[in-house]
């Protein structure tokens, strides 16, 4: 297994788990995770990131790796704030929230990661809440079974820098989706992704398998890339093509 992260409070995770790690740059968890998975598709790759890391600095990689549908589990610790840098607005900070850098309150519309992921057909999109430990663990296991880019946005309080979205705040609003929700229905999933405020749905929002990157990429079905060898005869053939 390989645990990849960027930079932030949440992104320190690889240092606390006894497994292989790649702790890269702020916003850049996904590119090395993709590279490692492509190089050795037998690795189970898990990405741990924050809302700033994944949706802000790394937003472009988020969009395009959902499109790539690279087979990995992406856990975003969404505390709706930049924790490590002491409390600035993140892409998921609510409108109107005041911080040192937004003294009059945030005017930007919050980023909706679930809706973006669903609209780009991520095969597995879920939301959890960090106080729900077993529930979250179960979702992570399900995400790891999904084939492709599996996103879990985990709501969590930042006790130091987010005085609005506290544990209490989430507890009052979060509810678990029941069997009446059909996660294979894209329109319904999008509807649930937009549900926010008074009630916040938890669980598998969207679950619709689609072929992953490794599965679709010619030649990635056998010997992992990293352990292959280019034969001299192959190079000689290329040289022959230059005459």
């Amino acid at each position: 297994m390989l645990l990849v992260s960027g930079i932030g409070q949440a992104a320190k995770l690889p240092h606390y788990i006894m497994t292989n790690g790649f702790n890269g740059l702020h916003g850049r968890a996904l590119p090395p995770a993709f590279g490692a998975k492509a190089a050795n598709h037998r690795l189970t790759v898990i990405v741990a990131s924050g809302d700033g890391d994944m949706y802000g600095e790394g937003g472009n990689h988020f969009i395009h790796n959902v499109r790539r549908n690279i087979e990995m589990t992406v856990i975003v610790h969404d505390n709706q704030i930049y924790g490590l840098t002491k409390g600035q607005a993140s892409p998921t900070t609510a409108k109107g929230v005041k911080t040192a850098l937004q003294p009059e309150g945030v005017v930007l519309t919050p980023f909706n990661p679930l809706a973006v992921a669903i609209s780009l057909d991520a095969p597995f999109v879920a939301r959890s809440f960090s106080a729900e430990i077993d529930f979250t663990a179960d979702l992570i296991l399900k995400a790891m079974d999904a084939k492709g880019f599996a996103l879990i946005d985990v709501l969590q309080p930042c006790v130091s820098f987010n005085k609005i979205n506290t544990a209490q705040w989430y507890r009052e609003r979060a509810y678990k989706l029941g069997p009446e929700h059909d996660p294979t229905d894209k329109a319904r999933a999008l509807e649930k992704a937009f549900e926010w405020g008074e009630k916040i749905p938890l669980g598998i929002i969207y679950d619709k398998p689609r072929p992953g990157y490794v599965e679709q990429t010619v030649g990635l079905d056998s010997e992992p890339i990293f352990s292959r060898i280019t034969k001299t005869a192959d190079v000689e053939e290329l040289v022959g093509g230059l005459y």
């Binding site: 390989l2 990849v4 790649f22 890269g24 740059l25 850049r28 590119p31 090395p32 995770a33 993709f34 590279g35 490692a36 998975k37 492509a38 190089a39 050795n40 690795l43 890339i225 990293f226 352990s227």
Partner: peptide, 10 residues
Amino acid sequence: NMALGASAAG
């Protein structure tokens, strides 16, 4: 960064 990840994987 992709290249670095691939390289780390060997």
